[in-house]
Structure formats: C-alpha cells, structure tokens
C-alpha cells in the first residue's frame, strides 16, 4: 500500500479506521480509501443515538462519480458525528485520519476492536 497508514489505529479490510479511547471509538476512512474515491462531495452521516452492529452501513460517502458505504467496524451507539463534513466533505480528502473523521461510537464490546487489523497487517493488503 503506497498511501499513509497510521500506527496505533485499527483497520478493516474495507478501508475504515478505528481509534479507540476509553469506551469510545472514532471512525473514519483510510488515506487509501479517500485516494480511491477522490473528490468527496457528499457525506450522509447517521443520527446520534443510533445503534449499529458490526458490519452495518454506518455512513455513505459520495464522490462525483461513485457512492460508497462505510461499514461499522465494531458494534455500538453513535455518540457524535462530524458535522463539519456537511458543509466541507472535502476534509475527508485532505485529512482522512484527523479532521475528516466520520463518527464516534460508544463501543459495546471492546474485544471486537482486537479482531481488527493493525497497521502492519493493513499495509500488507
């Protein structure tokens, strides 16, 4: 993988990242994913309070040409969404791991996070 992969984050094969802090997990899409999408022009975020199961559709990220689903890497309750993306979805392209986060989940079962890929394993994809 030629794109930026951050150490310390957990990853999915479908190119989401997870940053766990206590019981909360921030979720976004990887640098590779934003490169593939190019020009993110619209993000549909879930409503705060929504319960999601691992593998459920969490958000929709649209580029000019394509519509891509972002799946919940772990189960939990949506406690925050990045409302900045409503007006500036392109932040996902410029800052996929920081300002371009999508959703914060209250994680139901932290052991689920351990089943995700670490940076080294994600790089190998």
């Amino acid at each position: 993988m030629t794109h930026d992969v951050r150490d310390g984050l957990k990853y999915t094969k479908t190119h989401e990242w997870v940053k766990l802090a206590g019981a909360k997990a921030k979720i976004g899409i990887t640098d590779h994913a934003q490169h593939e999408l190019t020009d993110v022009v619209f993000v549909e975020l879930p409503t705060v309070g929504k319960e999601v199961k691992k593998g459920d559709e969490l958000c929709v990220v649209e580029s000019v040409k394509s519509v891509s689903e972002v799946y919940a890497p772990v189960s939990g309750k949506v406690v925050a969404v990045n409302t900045k993306l409503d007006d500036s979805p392109e932040i996902i392209n410029s800052s996929p791991y920081d300002d371009g986060w999508l959703v914060e989940l209250e994680v139901k079962d932290k052991t689920e996070v351990n089943t995700l890929l670490d940076a080294a394993a994600y790089k190998k994809l």
């Binding site: 190019t38 020009d39 000019v64 040409k65």
Partner: peptide, 8 residues
C-alpha cells in the same frame, strides 16, 4: 481513463 488529476 476515468480521470488523470481529479474529476472536479
């Protein structure tokens, strides 16, 4: 080619 730089 679908794009070279970006569609926009």
């Amino acid at each position: 080619p679908i794009q070279y730089s970006s569609i926009r």
